[in-house]
Design a binder for these strands. Structure first.
Lengths: 139, 139
DNA sequence: ATAACATTTCGCCGATGAGCGAAATGTATC
DNA sequence: GATACATTTCGCTCATCGGCGAAATGTTAT
């Protein structure tokens, strides 16, 4: 019961659903997910931790890159069924299709370049430059 | 997408899942759900509103009693699939079985008596009697 | 009309969630 | 070993959630 509730809680967030669908196509490294979701690296890390603890995603560290992949659906029936549910409900909906296109473009880029841009994002921003407002949730 | 997220959010709460399973057996009035979940009437009303807005539950007012019933699963594929998912995952797990037993006992009682006890619960409690702590979430 | 009654709405509180930046961690590379 | 680098952990803020009691709503009974 607790486990299923945790699973449902993990799924009850749009950004996490987008991440899950992105991983359907194959494994992705953290910086690629950051680029896709347009969230801070720390935020993406949190989300992936939640998905991992729910058993929806597996992670593997290779060198200093962290690779995430969709969890094996055979090992946990609830996870498999949940994924099937999501596929039938969200496959080919607007936000997912949009992400799929953007992801294709991201995969064509060099991961190193992505990471560099992501660290610049906070480092610079100019001394006197005003911070652009934090991203707010929509719900 | 938004709709599916709202559906998943509605399902991501243990008390709401228990209410859904209770309704699998047939319609229930508000006071019976209050008795089953052991929550304040206002709280149960909130939960049922969330389930209703997610399309999981239908409500019908007859006289001054409000009857809740499981939504028709044919009308909304996502709802039907979600319910199927829940059944395969939670059917015959400990908390659901426990509720089923308790529900049988509740159904044997007079609804009027349930309502009376529920209003007493706040009305009395004694002038000098110390309030027993509010119910805390477990998560 | 009034009273009794079942339920919902409102206003509040403490806990949790999502977001960020800064600091910490771990891993190549020099 | 020191440095650069990718990611995670920590600490914070604001928004949302789950819980309650009190007041409001709508309905039958007197």
């Amino acid at each position: 019961m607790k486990k299923v509730v945790r699973l449902l809680q993990a799924l009850a967030d749009e950004n996490r659903l987008r991440a899950l669908f992105a991983l359907e196509r194959g494994e992705l490294c953290a910086c690629q997910l950051v680029e896709l979701l347009r969230l801070a690296p720390s935020t993406v890390s949190q989300h992936m931790g939640i998905l991992r603890r729910a058993g929806l995603v597996a992670a593997e560290k290779r060198g200093r890159w962290m690779y995430y992949q969709a969890a094996d659906e055979e090992t946990s029936p609830p996870v498999g069924r949940a994924k099937a549910f999501l596929r039938t409900c969200l496959q080919d909906t607007a936000p997912i299709l949009r992400d799929r296109k953007r992801l294709a473009a991201i995969l064509r880029r060099d991961p190193h370049e992505l990471c560099r841009r992501q660290s610049r994002r906070t480092a610079s921003a100019g001394p006197t430059a005003e911070r652009r407002g934090r991203q707010r949730r929509s719900r």
